[in-house]
Amino acid sequence: MATIEENLTNLRLGSESALSFFMDMYSHNLHFFAYKLVRDKDTIPEVISESFVKLWAHRTQFFSIEELKSFLYIVVRNSCLDQAKKGRERYAHGQMEEAVLLPNTDTDILTKIIHTELIALLGDALEKLPLQQAKIFRLTILEGKTTAEVCEELQTTASTVYFARSKAISALRRVFLKKNISYYLLVIFLLFS
Results as ranks from 00 to 15, higher is better:
P103C: 11
L68H: 07
N78I: 01
A134R: 11
D40A: 10
Y183N: 03
L126N: 06
T3Q: 08
S166F: 15
L142P: 06
Q83R: 13
I141G: 05
Y73H: 03
C151I: 10
L81F: 08
L126G: 03
K69Q: 14
R77V: 01
A148E: 14
F189Y: 14
L186Y: 12
K54P: 01
E97D: 14
Y183S: 05
L110A: 13
T156Q: 00
T43N: 07
P45Y: 01
G14Q: 07
F176G: 00
K128S: 04
M1E: 08
E6Y: 01
G94E: 06
R173I: 05
T157W: 01
A158V: 09
D124H: 10
I113R: 06
T107I: 11
V175Y: 00
I48A: 00
L19R: 02
T111V: 11
I181A: 02
L139S: 07
R165N: 08
W56M: 08
V175E: 02
H28V: 14
V38N: 05
Q132F: 08
V175D: 00
M23Q: 15
W56F: 07
I181S: 01
G123D: 15
E149S: 11
Q133Y: 10
R39N: 12
P45V: 04
F137K: 09
E97H: 09
L118Y: 14
L126A: 06
Y26I: 05
A148R: 15
F176E: 00
F71Y: 11
K179Y: 04
L122P: 02
T116D: 03
F63H: 15
A34K: 01
F21D: 05
L122Q: 03
Y26E: 05
Q61A: 10
T107S: 08
R174I: 05
H115E: 12
A120F: 04
F63Y: 15
S170H: 13
F192Q: 15
F52A: 10
K85Y: 02
L154C: 12
I65E: 12
M23N: 09
T105M: 07
T3P: 07
I119Y: 09
S51Y: 04
N180G: 00
S193K: 08
I169Q: 12
E6T: 02
H31F: 13
A168W: 13
R173Y: 11
S49Q: 14
V53C: 06
F163A: 10
F21K: 11
K167Y: 01
K178L: 09
F137T: 04
Y183R: 07
L131H: 14
Y73P: 00
E5A: 07
L129S: 02
V161R: 03
R165I: 03
T116E: 02
H28G: 13
I44T: 03
R173M: 05
T111I: 14
S79R: 10
S27F: 05
N29R: 14
I141H: 11
A34F: 00
L191N: 04
R173P: 01
N7L: 10
D106A: 09
F33G: 06
W56E: 06
L110S: 11
E152Q: 15
E66T: 15
F63T: 14
L139Q: 11
V76L: 06
C80A: 09
S170M: 08
N180T: 08
L102Y: 11
A99C: 05
T140D: 00
T105A: 05
F176P: 00
I4P: 04
T111Q: 09
A120Q: 13
